[in-house]
Every structure is written in structure tokens, then in C-alpha cells.
Design a protein around this nucleic acid. Sequence first.
DNA 1: TCTGAAGTGTAGCCATGGCTACATTTCAGC
DNA 2: GCTGAAATGTAGCCATGGCTACACTTCAGA
Lengths: 155, 155
Amino acid sequence: MARAVKRKTGAAAVRLPAELTQARRFSKTRSAQSSALLEDYVELIADLLTTGGEARPTDVARRLGVSHATAIKTIARLKREGLAPGRPYRGVFLTQEGQKLAARVRTRHRLVVDMLLALGIPAEAAEADAEGIEHHASEATLKAFAQFLQSREQN
Amino acid sequence: MARAVKRKTGAAAVRLPAELTQARRFSKTRSAQSSALLEDYVELIADLLTTGGEARPTDVARRLGVSHATAIKTIARLKREGLAPGRPYRGVFLTQEGQKLAARVRTRHRLVVDMLLALGIPAEAAEADAEGIEHHASEATLKAFAQFLQSREQN
DNA sequence: TCTGAAGTGTAGCCATGGCTACATTTCAGC
DNA sequence: GCTGAAATGTAGCCATGGCTACACTTCAGA
Ligand SMILES: [Mn+2]
Ligand SMILES: [Mn+2]
Ligand SMILES: [Mn+2]
Ligand SMILES: [Mn+2]
């Protein structure tokens, strides 16, 4: 295309900013994707901690449907990123920062599920889709979801 | 927890199926994630082909915001998977299967964007979020989106 | 107190999807 | 026709996130 600039003179120049915009969108999606896994781990660990008082790598692995080795490796990444402290063989916990992230993620998760349910989507599909969708919902989208739900409640 | 089975006898046994369900959800999300990139490539290539008659690796790279080397490597994967034929230095095309996939993906993309717009989400946020969300919307969810839009048009 | 099963951790493999650096090919314009 | 700039392709690096196989800790119960 760059070689074609001299062929299709006019339109190409105009389309350039659109290319940048689209590239930025994809870039945003990639970045969301890279935090998605950590978000799910933190959310799940928080859930295990509140429910059972402890979060063990094996439990995390079983709930996520991955091997315990995979879970342990990712938990190590949580530790590296300052989201989870913890000594070896002692279960996982969350730092203040980890807890804050967990709270945000849990709220968001519920909002997305509720929205899908409100649209009449069957429960299991709503839960499954939400697990992926949640990581790509911007603040603007979350706000719109909340407003939609609120307007629904009023009738 | 498995070690804890003998401590917390009752509840753990009941919770087992729920664990499997949740694991299945995460597994589904992971699988959606693994096809997401190919879907975006195919969608974009189809777009370039219809718009300009050709899809060159450099154009694909620029639109996705990645290096040309990355684009070429992923395009090689498209070829491996039977979605794109093409000789070296000759631009990319789509097989019948690739075209079918592109059509499905494009329709889905538009539906998701339209849904978000209908909820009052600002255009740029809608476009950006849709780029990630689309890959996690099941048939049930797409159907619900379509129905919502239809009911909207009628007033 | 000992011990073995369960849980935890480590090592090392693979595919993916980014990147930079460099080599090769194409083709517009002279 | 030549040629050099742009496009294309290749090589090789890295991090991530899966996996299996094996080693090490822990602790419930004998
Ligand atoms: Mn999730
Ligand atoms: Mn979630
Ligand atoms: Mn997309
Ligand atoms: Mn798309």
C-alpha cells in the first residue's frame, strides 16, 4: 500500500488517521487480554478466601480447569506483581492492592452477568460469556450497563 | 482442600459439580481467546480485499498496530490452518472457508457494536470494547442482542 | 513418633504472539 | 533495462500460559 500511495493518491492520505484509530483499538484489546488472566486469578482467590478462609493452589487450579503447575506459575506472577504475598506451602493471600483489584473485578463481573441475564440470556451462557466479556468492558460500557439495569428495575 | 475433605465433610462434596461448571466456563473463555486473533485477521483481510482489492501484510500490520514481522507470522498460521492461500510476495487472500469465517465474524462484529451503541455508549468506546467482546459472545448472547435491537427499532 | 498420601514446587517441554535486525524480492520511475 | 526504496520474508530473541514428570513438604491418623 505504501508503494501504492502514488497510485491511489487522494483517498489513502485521508484514511491514515482511521488506520491509527483502528490500531489503537486493537492495541487496547491486546492490553485488556494481558490483564484478564491476573484479574480472574485475583477474583477467584478472593472468593476462596471469603468462602473458605484459605486459597490453595490446588483449589485455584481445579476451579480454573488447569493443572496445579500452571496455577502455581501464575500465582508466582501475582507475587511478582505485588498482588499476592505468601510463603511456600502456606496458601495464597492478597495484598491491599490485590484486594482492591479483586473488589473491582468482582463488582464488574456481577454487573456484566446481570446485564446479560436482563437481556434474557440463559444463565449458563450468561455466566460463561461474562467470564470473557468482563475484561473488555470499559468504564463507559459499565456505566451504560448499570443504567440499563436501573431503568429496568423501575418498571 | 482435598486434604481438608475430611475436616469439612458435607459442603465440599456438594460443591464439586459447581467447580466443574466453573472450570468449563474458564476453559471456554480460553478457547475463545485462542481463536480471537485469527478471527480479527480474517475479518481485516476480508475488509482490505473488498475495499482495495488486495491485502498486503504491511497494511494488515499497520491496521492492527503490530510489526510487519508479527503480521507475516500470523498470516503464515492462517495459511497453515487453511484459511488463506497465497504465494510469497503476492499479498494475502482467503479460501472459501476463510471467506465464510470472515462473513460470520463481520456480522457478529457489527451486531456487537450496534448493541453497545444502542445502549448509549460513546462510539469510540463501543468500537474499542466490541473488538474484544465480540469473541466472547455465544450464539445465545448474539440472539439476545439482535432481539434487543429489533425491539428498539419498533418504537 | 512415623509415615505415606496429598499438596506443593521445580524443571523442562511446546505453541503463541510480541519484538528487532537483517536478507531478499519486487517494481515505479528514471 | 537498471536501480534503489519499499515491501516482504527470515532468524532469533523474549514473555506468557499451557502441559507432564519428578522432587520435596506437610500433616492426619495409625
Ligand atoms: Mn474472566
Ligand atoms: Mn470473572
Ligand atoms: Mn476483535
Ligand atoms: Mn472485529
